[in-house]
Design a protein around this nucleic acid. Sequence first.
DNA 1: AGCACGCCGACT
DNA 2: GTCGGCGTGCTC
Length: 757
Amino acid sequence: MKIAQVYINQLNIHLDRLFDYLVPKHLESQVIPGSRVVVPFGFGNKSIDALVWDLKSPPSDSSKLKSILGVVEHFPVLDHQQLKTCRFLQQVHHSLFMDVANAFYPGPIQIRKHKDSNGVLRYYVGQKDRESWLWKISQRNPNQTLEQLLSTVRSNATVQREILTLLWESPIEEAVLTARFRGVKKTLESLRSAGFLEKHRMKSMELEDPGPLEVQGAPRLTEAQQQILEDFEKGFQQTHLIHGVTGSGKTEVYLHMMEAALKKDKTCLYLVPEISLTPQTIHRVKARFGQEIAVIHSRISDGERLEQYKKIATKEIRIIVGARSAILSPFQDLGLIVIDEEHENTYKSSNRPRFDTVSLAQEIARLHGAKVVLGSATPSIGTYYLAKNGQYGFHRLPDRMNGQDMPASLVVDMRVELQSGNRSFLSRTLYASMREALKRKEQIILFLNKRGYFSYVFCRDCGYVVKCKQCDVTMTYHGEDNRLECHYCKATAPVQHQCPACGSRKMKYSGTGTERMQNMLQKYFPHATVLRMDTDSMKKKDAIADAVEDFTLGKADILLGTQMVTKGFDFENVTLVGVLLADLTLNFPDYRSSERTFQLITQVAGRAGRGNKKGNVVIQTYEPDHYAITHAQQHDYEGFYEKEVAYRKMNRYPPFSTLMYIGFSGNDEKEVAKECSEYHRLLSAEVTKTDPSLVFEAYPPSKSNIVRVNNKYRYYILIKTEHVDAFQEAIHHVQRSKETKQFKSTIFVDVNPNFIF
DNA sequence: AGCACGCCGACT
DNA sequence: GTCGGCGTGCTC
């Protein structure tokens, strides 16, 4: 008899290991690695679903083992590569095996259970597509008023009346209604059968229909592009970096590489940092290949996701475009993974399952014998380091496609501005350049990395600063809803005219965000139209796509925004880019703040001069001599890299070490602090078994920079090490130990985290 | 996680 | 004398 080693589908660290079960004779042909089975588990032998990892021959004594009860479906849901991927993330990012496994298949394929007519528990794979529904008032009597409608409903049916009143305003999604009223489904259905309401199937979050597709042939490549394709073909490395300045035609190279892979009957994955910011790219891929492609991101409906999943699994679709979650697709014969804008931090998943897309893509490519292509104008330091050292194939595109030079950049020292009496946010240089550009009917992009109107409120008498009730964070004033908002927990508070500490009425609002800047710009340039682009103004569905279209059509002269405006947009008429305050990212307490600043400035500068007119960039800062700023001004990636890599080497930061962050959070600060220290002690003891000197690489427990968020207190342990394996093993062990099981704090491990605080 | 077992306190 | 609190330990 065979033994199956399975993972139990119960997301708990203490069950994140293999369990052995006997395979009954009649199931032998169906129980294979990747199959989902139902097994008895625990004292009560409760049935639970599990995933088969492997089969083995029984040891001499198998009397203790229980038997598999049945299979969920008679084919494996995960193939060999996918199983390996689960194991990889389990080891490298401390994910739960089943967390990754569950992320591989769409919601509708997740296992459900129900009792059949005999009261027997049955497992099945729910095929029902969790569609969203839109509810609206029935159009039976078009001339009816709300009052007339309500008069036909019982006066004590308060919920029904409230719903009708709400829907009278506008149709509402079912999910929104159920979130608001408990058990509203029955009410809605009865209102529907009474003829008051109707519901419509809604396709959630679909990208705009690009209109009829005209398949475009491949344009002629430049010599430099052609050369890259040849080198790539010949290159022995698995991973390749294309370092190409903004507007150098990297996309065209990717498309050619994909074409070559498709010709070999392989599948391609094209990853972008954020789907909603890259409609232009998706349209280009579609237009080029003229065949069905899958577009995957975390906001597509379950139904759509299931459909794409099936088509990818059967190789009906061979081109997949998507955000990072697309890396967990059921690839068949994968030949190429393209990761565009490789440096973007959206590629790091800091939710479960945690992973970083680049290293995961490399692992998946290795399993499939595929290649990985990373592209960026501002590669991350780690990537560039490996490329320079020959571990990656290294290709460059130093020139812009349109033959234009890189835009001319000017750094403005805001201290000098201040000394000469200009206290506004626009330096005289930037103001003059803007006037010039507007006069020539050219467009402008302004980047300010701070949203809201005023960024904080304080009392001029006692110095009290208004903070969020549940976080140690100052609150930002938002003019549009005339409220204070916490940017950490989204809580809001009314505007305060009186100091809660001393009663003084001298409350001062200070610090400029995008909202206020928009107002000021409108005053300085009354004839110009300012379009604001930040998470506040772009909340509505399709808002970004609409804004991009409006700006392309010239409906606005100035595009003002946060990080969003630095992403790969391509507006031909933009000739001036202004960075309003480069210091905001520069002073961020993180070892990568220089890297981020350089990337942001270079990327946003790259939006200028993409058409046939030359671009100009003005960078405002209080630290004009900082190397991130001076090298960004000169478009000198290499120079910046040299300085940055020296700094990293000296301080043993990545890529010369690996950082591991172990976070603790809980309601009682003392307890969190105590458990964090205890964990540190356990970890030190564990890692000492390998090498006592390693103890010093785990920094002692610290308070987070912002200790309290959402009323939870946060502490952390940071590990900076060259001995990754020793720490991975030690953490793995401590995480599963008896001692930490008693902990009340939530613990999470984040390897190479995006932010440290 | 989810469940059984076990060892204490406060009830009929 | 018993019911039930939750701390402790285990799940093939």
